[in-house]
Design a protein around this nucleic acid. Structure first.
Lengths: 463, 463
DNA sequence: AAATTTGTCTATTTACATTTC
DNA sequence: GGAAATGTAAATAGACAAATT
């Protein structure tokens, strides 16, 4: 790790002594924050030891420590006993990530939308419901937790994603992001830590940041969290939970191995970790693997969402929760949503109960495969991870590019893609890669156009 | 304030010295929490001074202070320099409040539902939309912020609630509670303080508690926040914002005076307070007063919700926000919801754009007035605050009752009502009163039955 | 109006645990 | 594998400011 090759030489950061009238630790924290934001301190930089800084300013170590703590809470730093304190890679991350709607005609391959074809199935079903049901009632408040048959319909669908659960374990949320926010707000406190892949879903990062929950990258082996890394994080980083997306991990597209799943389940049981399993893409898979939740139902909050696989506009997700977390989670959902729209619940549930949801999924799969073939054709010469059912791909960049740089080049050429840097957690160094949202461009023609542009950028490696 | 009449005599709380192997301040906090929860320490009790406790245990004051801080963060205590530390009145409050669906046939007058009649208007409108629109599109992701004409429709309706705003100020949320959660999560940090009425909306309390935001009761005069009290809270309690419900304050039904509104606007401008104005009931009023937001648009987040006045199931609210808070708030909404259902947005917007929303409101008013007359008839002999358009009432109890006691008696007799204690903030002592949800019982017959029961309890003051 | 009571905040002392060499 | 480096956490001392008397 050649972080500072001429160790101990000039201090990598020299704070000035604040004026006497300011609060010492806050003033130092502020200087540090400014220097990180302005780019004077680059991501990955190792800061001088706390003692050294304390000596330099002739103050106490703890005062430096406290200043660092302030910045760490903001996600700017991450420190490890013995190895020192580092500037985080995602320090300059925006508080949230959303597609640039008003951008001057960018082709969207950044935000992951599912296929955007008009959905005749939804149309038909909706008409059917409206004709038969006295749905004036559906515009009253709903029961916060929905009714039984609706949950049973969900259980059926979730089993197709690799997890056999039960109706009484389910709590409905208003989409996957809503489920994440509720879990973080209800089960974690500010300052709590959660382990994640070193490169993870930005929606989780931003929600955690907003709620003051710290994310800790867990060391990987073969593209997935390793036992050694996880145990380390439990012991030394005091993580209280772990966030995983075993199927088509966002953004790396990695499918977690069966051993990996069993290992996480086992370690979670042994150390009473809360596992947040995001099954958002699991239904993309025709032959699902068993969910981690299946191996450790008592530890796992399993999020099943319809957005990416059935219809995004339905805003419905279910959280399968063990009894011990149920009341806290249900309270959080109440605090965030009060209740869900009974109308959408009814609609989504009917789709699940009938075969309509599955038909929609099948349609999505077909369209995605078609687009994948286009990608394979145009970017055939490069490393593009991900299988043909996946609605996004992970493009490993050739020597000479960083993700950030490539994102910028693509943006200037009219294509929006997201660089690895956007997904990085803490001091984990992001690889040179970008995520491509397969289904986001409005049409296949647009997709082809975008791929040609990307191909051009890739080929003239001499920047 | 006869809190402890034989001052200084026996210490009101004597902690035991924790074992040496425990963390001192945590162990003390734990004892304190247990004693409060078990009822050994009653709400309102004044704790011994920190120094006295420190002497008693022969440890440092700061250690006690830190232990107290832990409990204060949990909302169990509230301390003021000079006057001491008190056990909070809402210490034993549940993390959330929701109707007891599975209760053995209680008549619901606790949770405030609007009138539950089947709504032919919604029905008709919905059919219309479905027949004309290609609404397969409505099941895609929506733009997080909705489109312009939809916002303009909302502007029109909000002006009927007493606030003339502009489309570009609006951000949609998934209902009023969702708006509150987003504001708290996006604009406040854990530990920040917000001033409220001493008796306030429990949904705000629980959301604040979950997010670690402290609530501070602001002193009142004539049933509304006083200037003196507000300035005190700014100076001495360091409140960063204030939460108000100027129209039909929940639960006291108080309508804030024009002077009160102007005063809050002025103080907020002078001290850069964030005003959270909850207009959830404003549309109940046929001749609205000007909103506080109208006097201080630069300081105010105005929440306009359709739930209580149009249709609860639509789950739609708008937040009118000044530019300076917009991006933080929009980020928070993204983190919590990702996006809203474009279908519900479209539906609600059409209702607002046409006259349908107003028709529904009118229908609600009519039904509420009818029920109010029933209340007036059966509880005529008692002090029942609130006007006939209001969907809840505030029953001041005769001598000899506390709210909590009355709630229990009513519950045992088959009627659910909410006692003042549920609404109390911090060490504010709740009055002897209960809230009656006028429109919640399923039918007028049920309402009458409930009122007869309540009347009986009230009359035998000899408990 | 001054003195006292009372909670709060910051910087420090000290002990500790993990990592690195 | 032991010593040194390094970050973390608890308890304390002391200064401060508001409220009460």
């Amino acid at each position: 790790m050649p972080v500072n090759s001429f160790e101990n030489y000039p201090m990598s950061w020299k704070p000035r002594m604040p004026d006497a009238d300011q609060t010492l630790y806050l003033a130092i924290a502020e200087q540090l924050e400014k220097d990180i934001e302005s780019g004077i301190l680059l991501p990955g930089t190792k800061l001088p030891p706390q003692r050294e800084l304390a000596d330099y300013l002739d103050i106490n170590v703890s005062t430096i420590s406290r200043a660092f703590k302030v910045c760490e809470k903001k996600g700017l730093l991450s420190g490890t006993v013995g190895s020192g304190t580092f500037v985080a890679y995602d320090a300059s991350a925006k508080p949230y990530l959303s597609p640039e709607y008003d951008a001057p005609r960018l082709i969207e391959m950044g935000s992951v939308f599912p296929e955007a074809t008009p959905q005749e199935e939804a149309n038909t079903l909706l008409r059917k419901i409206l004709l038969e049901k006295d749905f004036g009632k559906l515009f009253q408040y709903g029961r916060p937790e929905g009714v039984l048959w609706q949950k049973e319909a969900a259980v059926k669908l979730i089993s197709k994603a690799g997890y056999d659960t039960a109706a009484e374990m389910l709590l409905p949320a208003s989409g996957g992001q809503n489920a994440i926010a509720a879990i973080l707000a209800g089960l974690f406190k500010p300052g709590d830590r959660i382990g994640t892949d070193p490169i993870t879903y930005p929606g989780f990062k931003t929600a955690a940041k907003m709620l003051g929950v710290q994310l800790v990258p867990v060391r990987q082996e073969n593209g997935e969290i390793s036992e050694e890394g996880l145990i380390y994080a439990v012991r030394n980083e005091k993580i209280k939970g772990i966030y995983i997306m075993p199927d088509y991990q966002n953004p790396t597209t990695h499918m977690m191995s069966e051993e990996g799943r069993k290992m996480i389940a086992r370690v979670a049981r042994e150390h009473n970790l809360i596992v947040i399993e995001d099954g958002i893409h699991s239904l993309l898979n025709e032959h699902p693997q068993k969910a981690v939740a299946a191996y450790a139902p008592e530890q796992t909050l399993y999020i099943a969402s319809l957005s990416k696989t059935v219809a995004p506009g339905l805003r419905l997700a279910y959280i399968a929760t063990p009894e011990k977390y149920r009341s806290a989670l249900s309270g959080a959902l109440y605090n965030i949503n009060l209740s869900l729209s009974p109308f959408l619940l009814e609609l989504a549930s009917r789709m699940m109960a009938s075969k309509d949801a599955e038909k929609l999924i099948e349609t999505h799969r077909r369209l995605t495969r078609k687009r994948s073939r286009i990608i394979n054709k145009y970017l055939g010469g490069y490393s593009v991870l991900g299988s043909d059912e996946c609605i996004f791909r992970w493009l490993l960049l050739p020597e000479g590019f960083t993700g950030e740089h490539f994102e910028k080049l693509a943006h200037d050429a009219g294509v929006s893609v997201y660089a690895a840097e956007r997904f990085a957690v803490g001091k984990a160094k992001p690889p040179a890669a970008v995520r491509l949202a397969v289904a986001a461009p409005d049409s296949e023609e647009e997709l082809v156009k975008a791929l040609k542009i990307l191909g051009k950028i890739l080929s003239r490696t001499e920047l």
